[in-house]
Design a protein around this nucleic acid. Sequence first.
DNA 1: GATTTTATGTCAAGTAGTTGTCATTTATTT
DNA 2: AAATAAATGACAACTACTTGACATAAAATC
Lengths: 165, 165
Amino acid sequence: MSEHPSPAPHSKVDDLANRLFFRLYQSANLMHKSGTKALEDMHITTQQWAVIGALARDGAEDGIAVGELTRFLMVSRQNLTGVLARLERDGLIERVVSPHDSRSRLIRLSSHGRHLWRTDMSDRISAFYEAALEGFSTTDKIHAIHYLDKLLDNMRQLDEGQGES
Amino acid sequence: MSEHPSPAPHSKVDDLANRLFFRLYQSANLMHKSGTKALEDMHITTQQWAVIGALARDGAEDGIAVGELTRFLMVSRQNLTGVLARLERDGLIERVVSPHDSRSRLIRLSSHGRHLWRTDMSDRISAFYEAALEGFSTTDKIHAIHYLDKLLDNMRQLDEGQGES
DNA sequence: GATTTTATGTCAAGTAGTTGTCATTTATTT
DNA sequence: AAATAAATGACAACTACTTGACATAAAATC
């Protein structure tokens, strides 16, 4: 029947899954490259953008603990330490001791960081989003978010299971 | 009318776009973390996985030029050099001079690399895909791929425009 | 044949990500 | 009060990603 008598593969890898994850890999690479380029004259990378964006959310005015940030951004504490050090060096964030728990240093935007986020960064980011999501309807965006959320949920479960060592 | 008389934002950033890119950021981080963990006993990272997967495709048996690989994987030549050096060090790939263009070194899987891909790696990757895409129907996968493709197209255009410096 | 373009390698500096380990401080629990 | 747990900082080692710059070799063009 088959035109290509392939030599009985072990467990044929799902081609659609393969494509999906490869597209995710490519998309993330390109997002970091072109996203960082969109903010390059401010010397802000996509990772710093993610941190500043997290700190600019409503409810984060008084600061967020490092541990909370690592969970939110899904990066390691040691990595975030480096990113935060550079942001502090550049005067965009500041560390304050938590009033409730003096082990915990809360990270919050400096006034300079908040100002930059609200003006120049917002403008560039809006332009970036508009260009990158050209042709996306509102429902397209919602559906895309939904798929990524589902993927995240699954991988989170997988990661917890893998952590049992 | 508005319950929250917000102080006239410069250009209100699209919240859906924001969520979408943040989910992409998180998904990529988690994919690298849990994907690398799925192959950790082979000491293969997701980037190496991507390279090996590219080399294992039909038509790549005779090797792929480095430049072609950088375009395919969307990473820089300098970065790929390092990844390829580690893969060569571990005996998974080999470099051969192109018969057509002796500037060009073609990268191809070693027999060890090909064997590993077809057996252990395939098994782990299939298991990873199955867990990470639990609850995804075939059409879900196709739609998700479609959105990522669209995003990639847009960002590629953006990147080319940004490159005009 | 000489020039230009192309493919690659290499070195450097910077950022970002991982794990692992050890120390410190403080909260919590006993 | 003492032991434990938790949050953080500070290292180290490694992988991976970027850009920029310079060198080399070979192909393509003039």
